[in-house]
Design a protein around this nucleic acid. Structure first.
Length: 426
RNA sequence: GGAGGGAUGGCAGAGCGGUCGAAUGCGGCGGUCUUGAAAACCGUUGUCUCGGGCAACCGGGACCGGGGGUUCGAAUCCCUCUCCCUCCGCCA
């Protein structure tokens, strides 16, 4: 959520920035300003009347104590008059505020100055590329075939147990998943991130805090009996840990990491994009989150990008880093880098991480602040995947397939307990 | 699931329906003392918001778990929701 003062003070600049995100209702900004002016006017009037009421009530107390009941009664009648006026103003104010909030919630975050102008994902800018794209043997298979051949992942079984998009990992497949999670968490904690294991169900306050509500309501699974949402990413519970807190400068930066399964309804997805592990309803992901001083958040963003990049390098996968253009960014982000890994058998780039700076867009909602002198100030929040597992697994299987098995990168050997995935014994 | 108790400032802990934004203690910050530190003493110490100076500040309003009600007036009374504690039951 944008700060109303920002809209007030830099109206034209806000509109100009929103245009980069292809936000096509600049008139809402004007409506917001109008409502804001009305709101402040009403508050001023109401406060004045309440001031009068407080004084009068105090006087009534005095009158009663000194036995002047007559005067007290006339005073009471006046205050009752006042109260009807106050109630009227209060009703108006609430209505205005509701409209204001409704509009404000539909304004996306402003893109950073460096965000590329663009109309679609085609206009994203490749920042760096690394690793080597392997040449595969002639009979190379995509990961969904390898999964079956090596008895690693069973999508049809998931369909039987739950529905489509809920993969079942088995044997070496399950072990690989566990190894990756463990490795990623170790990599993050070594870099100073504090490990958490948060709840997988969150309430609506929490979902609202990071911006999942109301914007992406349909994307989350909802437990209606208890009014709880299944987490679509660890970002949600992790960032909300610090909701409604005022930190001291010495506590900064806050660096958090967590593994959680992620649940996404992905309504409306179809076709080859969803084949195999490319898009599923439940997947594993390790997330990193930082809450930092607003003056340094873009340095921290670069630091997080390098962190994820280093992790990817150790997996020895061909990758590239993409800076998202205005049209492709999320509602809440000010600047986002996507990480993609090359899936050699599918011959396409798959997104495995998204690292973003949200500036104060989330912290404004969550009221995450720090003390700066006598003032309080909003922190900046950032997060990124490090990493999302399914497409990493897909790329590992496809890129490393050899006639005698799937050779794993060295860093995984101790976690996996072997240097390769062996063909099933049969 | 059943019965009872509770939710107050960073923490602990008071609070007859009317100068209560809230006693007191601890902690924090500033100062005196000291070569320095500790102790002692003095002072200070919440958040949000509106208005004015458009800055260090000043004035108003709101906030004692959330929401609603009674009243001229509510931290204090009533209703409701949430959470916490104790006991019983059930259970990984």
């Amino acid at each position: 959520m944008l700060a109303i003062q920002l809209i007030r003070e830099k109206t034209d600049w806000v509109k100009q920035r929103l245009a980069v995100k292809h936000f096509d209702h600049p008139e809402w900004i004007d409506e917001i300003l109008q409502l804001d002016a009305q709101r402040r006017q009403l508050i001023t009037e109401q406060d004045q009347l309440q001031n009068l009421r407080n004084a009068a009530s105090r006087e009534i107390g005095m009158l009663l104590r000194t036995g002047q009941h007559q005067q007290a009664e006339t005073q009471k009648k006046e205050v009752i008059q006042l109260n009807t006026q106050i109630d009227e103003l209060e009703k108006q104010r609430q209505q205005i505020e509701q409209q204001l909030e409704h509009l404000l919630l539909q304004i996306p975050n402003l893109p950073h100055e460096s965000v590329p102008i663009g109309k679609s994902a085609d206009d994203n800018v490749v920042v760096r590329q690394g690793g080597k794209i392997p040449t595969l043997p002639d009979n190379a298979l995509p990961h969904w075939d390898l999964s079956v051949q090596y008895d690693l992942i069973h999508l049809d079984l998931g369909t039987k147990l739950t529905g489509s998009g809920f993969p079942v990992f088995k044997n070496q497949g399950a072990r690989l998943e566990r190894a990756l999670i463990q490795y990623f968490l170790d990599f993050n904690t070594r870099a100073g991130y504090i490990e958490y294991l948060p709840p997988l169900l969150v309430n609506e306050h929490t979902a609202f805090g990071t911006g999942q509500l109301p914007d992406k309501e349909g994307q989350m699974y909802f437990i209606s009996d208890d009014q709880l949402y299944l987490v679509p990413t660890a970002e949600v519970p992790l960032t909300n840990i610090y909701r409604d807190t005022i930190l001291s400068p010495e506590q900064l930066p806050i660096k958090l990491t967590a593994y959680t399964p992620c649940f996404r309804r992905e309504a409306g997805s179809y076709g080859k994009d969803v084949r195999g592990l490319n898009r599923v309803h439940q997947f594993d992901k390790v997330e990193i989150v930082q809450l930092v001083h607003p003056d340094h958040s873009y340095e921290v963003l670069e630091e997080m990008v390098v962190h994820v990049e280093n992790l990817l390098k150790t997996l020895e996968l061909p990758y590239r880093i993409v800076k998202l253009c205005g049209a492709d960014m999320s509602f809440t982000s000010a600047l986002t880098y996507d990480f993609e890994v090359y899936s050699a058998a599918q011959q396409r780039w798959l997104e495995v991480s998204s690292v973003s700076n949200f500036e104060t867009f989330q912290t404004q909602r969550m009221k995450i602040r720090f003390r700066e002198g006598k003032q309080t100030r909003l922190l900046h929040s950032l997060n990124g995947s490090s990493l999302a597992l399914p497409r990493i697994v897909a790329a590992l299987l496809e890129n490393y397939q050899q006639p005698n098995g799937i050779h794993l990168p060295q860093v995984l050997h101790p976690y996996f307990g072997a240097d390769k995935i062996s063909p099933p014994a049969d």
